[in-house]
């Protein structure tokens, strides 16, 4: 260090004589020491009241300033000042470097001895500190996207034991707390259905198996067929049916072909008592002559009654002319019984 200083000094003081670096340093330091001592004495001596100090120091300061001006005006003094200035800068830099080294060493030694965390925890009000921090601003400056992009979500998920989590979940409790009605009311069923591939679902359903598991008898047993039939308006249905068209499409020949005509004829003969009819016709009316007599008697009755009625000038009585031949009275009709 001395060499470098000497070398630099040699270049700058090439023109001047013959002061070495050490001599100059000593000179400066000596002057400084003298100055400091002098100033100390002066200050000690001028402790008295401020007014006195001002009165005494003002001329002294003026004298010192005047002395400095004179010294600066001299060449040697100029040179001395320049050297002192240079030396002071060099010393300042050295002191700074030294101080940094010493400070680092000291701080390290202190930290070895002192538990800084305990001190902070014991003596620092962390809540207050945190309260003064503007977390929003801090968060706003964080690039969340970048952070997320750097996270390996797959790896994290692969390390999660989903089964264990599910086992610890109270599914029943969660479901009990869900307001399904509200949730369902917010679902757009139409949109859901539109997105469903109904055909695909149906194609994958084993309908045979599903139907085989259904108890059709039980379902039918619960249906009130009578109530359903009671609600059917058969008249309205029949009004809309073209019975004539239906009848035209009937294959009557086939129907007749399936009928047991012989059996039917036997049944009819048995029901109408055909032997009785034959007996009646061959018994009471076997004689064509007797029938003629009866008919003539009926006619004579009518004629006599007609003549008598005309003679008595009254309306023809009953029985009048014979009624239509197709009319078959269900029983004896007694004419004029009411009159």
């Amino acid at each position: 260090m001395d060499e470098t200083t000497a070398a630099g000094t040699d270049e700058t003081v090439a023109r001047y004589e013959p002061l070495s670096a050490s001599d100059l340093a000593e000179l400066v330091l000596g002057l400084a020491a003298v100055g400091v001592e002098t100033a100390g004495r002066v200050v000690e001596r001028i402790r008295p009241p401020t007014l006195v100090t001002a009165v005494v120091t003002a001329p002294l300061r003026a004298a010192v300033t005047d002395l400095g001006s004179r010294l600066r005006r001299a060449d040697w003094s100029q040179e001395l000042l320049r050297r002192g200035h240079s030396r002071r800068g060099e010393l300042g830099r050295r002191v700074e470097v030294t101080a940094q080294r010493v400070a680092a060493a000291v701080v390290e030694a202190v930290l070895d001895v002192v538990d800084l965390t305990d001190i902070v925890v014991d003596h620092v009000d962390l809540d207050a500190v945190v309260g003064t921090v503007d977390l929003d601003r801090a968060v706003a400056r964080v690039d969340i996207d970048a952070i997320v992009a750097r996270v390996d979500i797959d790896a994290i998920v692969s390390r999660v034991d989903v089964d264990a989590i599910v086992e610890r979940l109270d599914i029943d409790g969660i479901v009990a707390r869900v307001d399904l009605d509200r949730a369902v009311s917010r679902v757009d069923i139409g949109a859901v259905i539109e997105r469903l591939d109904i055909d695909g679902i149906v194609a994958r359903v084993d309908l045979d198996r599903a139907v085989s598991g259904v108890d059709i008898d039980a379902i039918v047993g619960r249906v009130d067929i009578d109530a359903i039939a009671a609600r059917i308006d058969l008249d309205a249905i029949l009004d809309r049916v073209d019975v004539n068209a239906v009848a035209q499409r009937l294959d009557l020949d086939a129907v007749v072909g399936r009928l047991d005509l012989i059996g039917l004829a036997e049944y009819v003969v048995e029901e109408i008592d055909l032997p009785g009819i034959i007996q009646s016709s061959s018994g009471a009316m076997a004689s064509e002559g007797m029938r003629e007599v009866r008919w003539q008697g009926v006619g004579a009755d009518e004629r006599v009654a007609h003549v008598v009625d005309r003679m008595l000038r009254r309306r023809p009585r009953t029985p009048g002319p014979a009624l239509p031949a197709t009319e078959i009275a269900p029983g004896p009709v007694i004419p004029g019984s009411a009159g």
Binding site: I272, D273, G276, I277, S280, S281, M285, R291, R294, W295, G297, V298, A300, D301, E302, V304, A305, T318, P319, A322, L323, P324, A325, T326, E327, I328, A329, P330, G331, P332, V333, I334, P335, G336
Partner: peptide, 28 residues
């Protein structure tokens, strides 16, 4: 038997059926 009477009337001549049950006149 009930209903047999109309059946037995089938054998009657047409005009005679209409007078069955009517009161008879003096001639007969």
């Amino acid at each position: 038997r009930p209903g047999r009477d109309p059946v037995s009337r089938i054998v009657l001549p047409g005009p005679a059926r209409s007078v069955q049950g009517h009161r008879a006149g003096i001639v007969t």
